[in-house]
Write a protein that binds this DNA or RNA. Structure first.
Lengths: 254, 254
DNA sequence: CATTGACTATGACGTTACGTTATAGTTTAT
DNA sequence: ATAAACTATAACGTAACGTCATAGTCAATG
């Protein structure tokens, strides 16, 4: 029994338009058509679509995906390895950009304290010039690592952790705004990351302690202020989510 | 002396087309035109272009850049902070994808060794299904399948470490209650274990970093909460003990 | 002075992966 | 029979330009 476009779309979570598009570009043409010209997808088509979506979520372009899914003897491992390299480079670039942003923000703050006119002139050109030079020379550059590196390491390290937290809190805040249940999988996953980071980077944290931490979020003014600043209602939201998380861990143990 | 398009382009390393484009969309219109309609860029235009390119390299969209560079009292810091969040999320996503790629490649290799038919069928569907489930959960679109993957992560390894830590903290807490000096040998021994575990299990930790960690115990509310929860005053007590520990290490080196 | 080469201007289509109408025919339930 | 729900093709819109195509302009040369 073949599937209609809508059935396919709902099964796989894409839009009908997407299926039309894939048909248009020849990425996934339905096995057949009805008398009236309606697309009829077979089981095989379903499987192929799964693969297509899999690669798509890995960030491959449709053209690449066509090659990959088009021939069974295509070298998938190489394709994956290559793609991984691309992603690693992207990450690298993003990291570099984040550093620049950090520097720029610091310089902005200094600028504000030192001179209000600087604000008016936007950024101080040194920062910009410096950065652009760096960017141009990035590939021929050898980093000169000095002894200060260690000291910097601590700072950067700490900032990285803060960044990780920032992402998590922002994500949870967004889900809260969307009306997601604190017990929902998506929220719980983020809470899980929170929990993991504490364990990895800071201290050994038991569910009991974690739950207590959640309570503190609403009972301790400092915590509350911090979370409410991110999003109103987030403190209580996190407390609930963390409680659920701990409940689940304890259930599993039992 | 005004600049022509080509001069501008060569100076800043962009194409003439780009300058045309920026003019078209009103991002950067030249200060004037010649009688024949040739664009004439001023020094100010050059500066503005530098700023534009700076933000472009940070990954901002032209629309955003227009806002940023268009008004001097635009909140650049917020813009940078927001952008940083976006980048952090991107990094997060890339990390997740890389993990999936790693898993997939592993599974491909296993599949190949174990079963040639698998090769023909490309990927084993479990991997794909698994991933897609996760992805759906992550974005909160559908499925409320609660998988505590993160929680699973810890497992036995974590438990062992957690237990070790629990013992140490408890021991230090007890000694504190007995009125022992943070510099006493008994306390320092426990601190040493703390230090060693961090180095062995987590990351390379210098005295400098370790000292900073101690500071955090009293300065960061989240840490403080944890230690205060074990025993009142433990946060500050540990900070002092850790400082002493670091002093000693540094003395020995010298 | 006309020609040539270098430069410039304004369109306008192509790119990626669809979203979004718009128009029109088909199937199904009532 | 008619409405509701579904399907098809067509075509424009998106971001930030690249890439022609067509045509006018400027400086130097023969």
């Amino acid at each position: 029994m073949p599937y209609t476009v809508k059935q396919m779309a709902e099964m796989s979570g894409v839009s009908v338009r997407t299926l039309h598009h894939y048909d248009e570009i020849g990425l996934l043409s339905p096995a057949g058509r009805s008398a009236a010209g309606y697309r009829k997808y077979s089981e095989e088509d379903v499987e192929k679509l799964q693969q297509i979506l899999f690669f798509k979520e890995l960030g491959f372009e449709l053209g690449e995906i066509a090659k990959i899914t088009g021939s069974p003897d295509f070298d998938r491992r190489s394709a994956l390895a290559d793609h991984k390299m691309v992603l690693l480079k992207k990450m690298d670039r993003i990291k570099a950009i984040i550093k620049t942003i950090d520097k720029t923000m610091e310089s902005l703050e200094r600028g504000n304290k030192m001179n209000k006119k600087e604000m008016f002139g936007a950024f101080d050109e040194k920062t910009i010039e410096e950065y652009r030079k760096e960017a141009r020379a990035r590939y021929g550059e050898k980093a000169v690592e000095c002894e200060r590196r260690t000291a910097k390491y601590a700072k950067d390290d700490w900032r990285a952790i803060q960044d990780e937290y920032a992402v998590i809190y922002r994500a949870i805040g967004d889900m809260m705004l969307k009306g997601a249940d604190p017990a929902s999988a998506a929220v719980q996953e983020q809470i899980g990351r929170h929990y993991s980071i504490i364990n990895e980077k800071f201290y050994s944290c038991t569910p009991e302690i974690f739950r207590g931490l959640g309570e503190l979020y609403v009972s301790d003014a400092r915590f509350t202020a911090f979370y409410e600043n991110i999003e109103k209602g987030l403190a209580e939201y996190m407390r609930r989510a963390m409680a659920v998380y701990c409940d689940d861990i304890e259930k599993k143990k039992a």
